[in-house]
Simulated assay, not measured.
Amino acid sequence: MASLAWLLIPLFAAIGAAIWGSWAARDRTQGDISELAGYARFREAMDRADGARAGAAAHSATDTA
């Protein structure tokens, strides 16, 4: 009976590894689309903010001159 218990340990480990492997290999492309769209919006907002800062700096430089 003890030998059967020792044989069940690798069996349970193999089943657990198969479950984990199938979970790790699942298709996750659905979430990537919304994340990429959010990143594009972030880049656009940062470009607008950089342009506004550059415009404000140029405007303040002409006011002091």
Score class of each variant (00 low, 15 high):
residue 17 A to K: 09
residue 5 A to Y: 11
residue 62 T to R: 10
residue 20 W to K: 05
residue 18 A to S: 09
residue 57 A to Q: 15
residue 36 L to S: 07
residue 57 A to V: 08
residue 44 E to H: 03
residue 65 A to Y: 14
residue 44 E to A: 13
residue 11 L to I: 15
residue 59 H to G: 02
residue 8 L to Y: 12
residue 36 L to F: 13
residue 65 A to M: 10
residue 27 D to M: 10
residue 27 D to W: 04
residue 22 S to Y: 08
residue 47 D to V: 00
residue 62 T to C: 03
residue 50 D to R: 09
residue 43 R to Q: 02
residue 42 F to C: 04
residue 65 A to C: 05
residue 19 I to F: 01
residue 18 A to E: 05
residue 44 E to F: 00
residue 28 R to V: 10
residue 12 F to D: 01
residue 8 L to W: 12
residue 9 I to K: 09
residue 18 A to M: 03
residue 29 T to P: 04
residue 65 A to F: 12
residue 64 T to S: 06
residue 39 Y to L: 14
residue 4 L to H: 07
residue 21 G to W: 03
residue 44 E to P: 00
residue 35 E to V: 10
residue 17 A to N: 11
residue 57 A to Y: 14
residue 3 S to M: 11
residue 17 A to W: 12
residue 39 Y to A: 08
residue 36 L to M: 15
residue 28 R to Q: 08
residue 49 A to M: 05
residue 5 A to R: 12
residue 15 I to K: 00
residue 62 T to A: 09
residue 37 A to K: 12
residue 30 Q to K: 13
residue 11 L to V: 11
residue 14 A to N: 02
residue 52 A to W: 10
residue 5 A to H: 10
residue 1 M to L: 06
residue 18 A to D: 04
residue 5 A to G: 04
residue 3 S to N: 11
residue 33 I to F: 15
residue 42 F to W: 13
residue 47 D to A: 03
